[in-house]
């Protein structure tokens, strides 16, 4: 039923010729009864396009030619455009080569990957083995120095003898001198250079070679199998303190030389705080003593590894195997893992 509310759709359907005959008549009656809608109606009628008969396809013969080229014989399902077999790809060999290139591209990557993995493994093994053998390698130069100049031992340790012989009261008399003390012998050559001959002569008067050996032997941390008793350590510390005093008093002129001697003779573990301070100061200021310091210091790889192992041990030692409300769990760092 056409009304004033839906008349527009009916008008449009009428123009599109989509209405039945009955509906078309209904629309015409509705327009006759509503003259105020005549304007809209006429406007829509003008919107219909009429085909422009003047427009014709200019090249119709060409269209006919499409069928004529193929011919009436092509009623069977023959292809319209038969392939021109004379046209061939000129560089077909290059196509085959590309396929081979693809294979070659993949293989080198595989090889490179395997080579990189092998190189990484070898580098890791070398690194790890280097760290494990760092202790002996660090001790090697010391032993070498000992072997090189055994004859220098008395002369190089003259200053030390003069200092420590005076206060060598607590030294155990039974302790035998260690001829291949690495720390001591490794620094002999150095001391020979550092100490003036005149001072050495003066010190020689007050000390003997045996005293030196007796004093130096307990300080050997590596080669001395004899355990040091607490009384011996106390005595040695007393001797160290006295030796430090002697350094301060007697090395006004040649202070650096005396400190160098002190570093070589007194191990850090057994020296007093004042002695360690002097050693530390000397380490910072005297570049020539770097060799001696390097001999005493532990291998860097060893220290780092030890620190790493300690951290890991502490972490797991503190946190592993915790029980929380009857539930077993492991706390690793910040991660809490429940155990079944």
């Amino acid at each position: 039923m056409i009304t004033r509310d839906n008349y527009e759709e009916f008008f449009l359907l009428y123009i599109d010729n989509e209405l039945s005959v009955a509906d078309r008549e209904a629309v015409e009656r509705f327009i006759a009864h509503h003259p105020d809608l005549q304007k809209d109606w006429k406007a829509l009628l003008h919107c219909r396009l009429l085909p422009d008969e003047e427009l014709v396809f200019p090249d119709r013969e060409a269209l006919y030619g499409i069928g004529a080229l193929e011919g009436e014989d092509n009623n069977n399902d023959l292809p319209v455009f038969s392939p021109d077999l004379s046209i061939v790809f000129p560089d077909k060999a290059s196509l085959y080569k590309k396929e081979e290139d693809k294979r070659i591209i993949w293989l080198p990557w595989l090889r490179v990957g395997v080579a990189a993995a092998m190189a990484g493994i070898v580098a890791l093994l070398v690194l790890l083995s280097g760290r494990h053998t760092s202790v002996p390698s660090a001790a090697q130069p010391v032993v070498k120095n000992n072997k090189i100049d055994p004859a220098v031992t008395p002369a190089a340790t003259d200053a030390l003898h003069s200092i420590e012989a005076r206060d060598a009261v607590g030294t155990k008399p039974g302790i035998q001198p260690k001829p291949d003390n690495p720390v001591l012998s490794g620094q002999k050559e150095k001391k020979k250079k550092l100490l003036p001959r005149q001072d050495v002569q003066e010190e020689k008067e007050s000390v003997s070679q045996q005293d030196l050996a007796q004093q130096a032997a307990p300080h050997d941390p590596v080669h001395d199998p004899t355990p040091v008793k607490p009384t011996d350590i106390t005595a040695t510390r007393a001797a160290d303190i006295t030796a430090t005093k002697a350094i301060v008093t007697t090395t006004n002129v040649h202070s650096s030389d005396a400190v160098a001697v002190l570093q070589t003779v007194i191990p850090r573990e057994e020296s007093s705080f004042a002695t360690q301070a002097l050693q530390h100061e000397n380490e910072n200021h005297d570049p020539e003593n770097n060799i001696l310091v390097a001999d005493e210091s532990p291998a860097p790889g060893k220290g780092k590894l030890r620190g790493l192992f300690r951290r890991v041990t502490r972490t797991f030692g503190k946190t592993a195997d915790r029980d929380s409300d009857g539930q077993r769990e492991v706390l690793v760092g910040a991660f809490q893992i429940a155990l079944k």
């Binding site: 427009l55 014709v56 396809f57 119709r60 269209l63 499409i66 399902d77």
Partner: peptide, 25 residues
């Protein structure tokens, strides 16, 4: 059958005659 569906050259040319202008417009 297939033959009934196949457009012959004659039918094709008729298609050209009848509809070429329409399509072109």
């Amino acid at each position: 059958s297939f033959d009934e569906w196949l457009m012959t050259e004659k039918e094709y040319n008729e298609c050209v005659t009848l509809y070429a202008d329409n399509v072109y417009r």
